[in-house]
Write a protein that binds this DNA or RNA. Structure first.
Length: 438
RNA sequence: UCCCCAGUAGCUCAAUUGGCAGAGCGGAUGACUGUUAAUCAUCAGGUUCGCGGUUCAAGUCCGUGCUGGGGAGCCA
């Protein structure tokens, strides 16, 4: 008998097939049982009637506990009463692996309990949907860059130096010395851009920041394109085009998953280019004005010159259907490698893209400093050691060109698109300040 | 590093002014031939996070520690 997946059942109506999977839950009575069987591709209701299978097999079916694995064989039937429209009229059933006292019940659970059982929580419908959307986002990003002539350029996880001196790094023993886990592949991507013109890195990054919020993980995935001869506007356009491609792809391919998550897809359908570009000074004006009109609101007060907090990002996008891009941040609150605007020497030629619906900062990008002399002075200003950056300075010694790129936080993007409350649901096994298990 | 909150049955929670430790779900057993988080009946299930204190009496009040959650700072 042919083994098929649940999402192929519509092609087999009237035929006998085998489904292999796990029992989600079963209901029924003493003569008729409804087994919800999940096989990864979907869920199908398998119907076991005592009159069809006999006393012994019926008792076996009744004894299949939650999350036991099993094979069910029978006839595919189309029926409106069945979830999904198709069901399996069982002729034969076989338990593969019994599950005893499965900890996650169909009722509600707290986040601590669920995260302690993350390895099992992954089986539940919403987590299944989130990670399928994550998969779609990843491949949409790769396809987007591939279609535009970019080369995937993998950068190392072990690094000898910090990209941004301010951020805490994880240390690892590396034989008789120490290495740092990468907090960004950007510097290496710049070397790649000088070889291939257009590259992107896509990999895990590590930050030992003591942040315990819904917006932070200590290990997260980042996409970082880097393009030779690109300016700030080109960089922002690239970020916008990529974002639109990803949104449209998920809307096209993952409707069922968005529905499962009860995501308001009209919010995603409303996202459209061109995304608004806003000078930092304009954003600061809006925030100062808002704070004056809402004197009692926590997190609203804003001092021009400061970076934005989470509440500020939400205020700036509260009336917007699409992400906005804030440019020209004060250079002193940005990384050493950012080029400054010749017309406003105290401002960085960079941007932050802030998502709608309180998604926060999704992308940070900039034009890189391409002058050897200026870069050397920046490294000194930031009190960074010169020696580890000698190879990076070589990129400015040997045919330096204007270039730019950005970094997109994958989990933050998945959180925005899926509408989840927590970043920790947007990666299979989240790593946080107080959680490294399972 | 700082601020706020929480910890009671496997899970989610309740317990009045300090006065007998409770419910729903899950589990077990039984009934029911179209269930959709099925329904109904019965049963089992407790170091109230640890330590110390106040009190005739502490889940409840005080001190302290631990664990976790949310947020600030910092960041994607």
């Amino acid at each position: 008998m042919k083994r098929v997946y649940v999402d192929e059942l519509s092609q087999h109506v009237g035929s006998d097939v085998e489904i292999a999977g796990w029992l989600q839950i079963q209901r029924g009575n003493n003569k008729l049982r409804f087994l919800q069987v999940r096989d990864g591709s979907g869920i199908v209701q398998a119907i076991v009637a005592k009159s069809d299978v006999g006393e012994e097999m019926f008792e076996t079916a009744k004894g299949v506990t939650q999350e036991s694995s099993l094979r069910v064989r029978g006839t595919v039937n189309a029926d409106d009463r069945a979830p999904g429209g198709y069901e399996l009229i069982v002729k034969d059933l076989e338990i593969v692996g019994q599950s005893i006292d499965y900890p996650i019940s169909p009722k509600e659970h707290g986040s601590t309990f669920l995260l302690d059982h993350r390895h099992l929580w992954l089986r539940s419908k919403k987590q299944h949907a989130v990670l399928r959307i994550r998969h779609e986002v990843i491949w949409a990003i790769r396809d987007f860059f591939n279609n535009r002539g970019f080369i995937g350029f993998d950068t190392p996880m072990f690094t000898p130096n910090a990209v941004e001196g301010t951020t805490d790094l994880f240390e690892a023993k590396y034989f008789d010395t120490i290495a740092f886990l990468s907090q960004s592949g950007q510097l290496y991507a710049e070397a790649g851009a000088m070889a291939h013109g257009r590259v992107y890195t896509f990999g895990p990054t590590f930050r030992a920041e003591k942040s315990k919020t819904r917006r932070h993980l200590t290990e997260f995935w980042m996409v970082e394109p880097e393009v030779a001869f690109m300016d700030l506007e080109g960089d922002m356009q690239l970020a916008e085009d990529m974002t639109m491609y990803v949104i449209e792809r998920v809307l096209d391919k993952r409707r069922d998953e968005l529905d499962m998550l009860e995501r308001d897809v009209s919010k995603l359908e409303a996202v459209s280019g061109p995304f608004r570009r806003m000078h930092y000074d304009k954003a600061a004006d809006i925030l100062v004005k808002y704070a004056a009109e809402h004197p009692d609101e926590e997190g609203a007060p804003f001092t021009p010159g400061d970076d934005f907090g989470g509440r500020h990002e939400s205020i700036l996008t509260m009336n917007s259907d699409s992400p906005i891009m804030i440019t020209h941040f004060p250079a002193e609150i940005k990384a050493f490698y950012m080029k400054r605007d010749p017309d406003e020497p105290d401002r960085a030629l960079g941007f932050d893209m802030i998502g709608t619906e309180d998604a926060g900062e999704l992308i940070g990008g900039s034009v890189r400093e391409d002058s050897y002399d200026v870069l050397v002075s920046r490294i000194k200003e930031h009190s960074l050691p010169m020696e580890p950056f000698e190879w990076y300075l070589d990129l400015r010694r040997y045919g330096s060109v204007p270039h730019a790129g950005f970094g997109l936080g994958l989990e933050r993007t998945v959180k925005w698109i899926t509408g989840r409350d927590h970043l920790r649901e947007c990666i299979p096994f989240p790593r946080m300040m107080y959680r490294m298990k399972p």
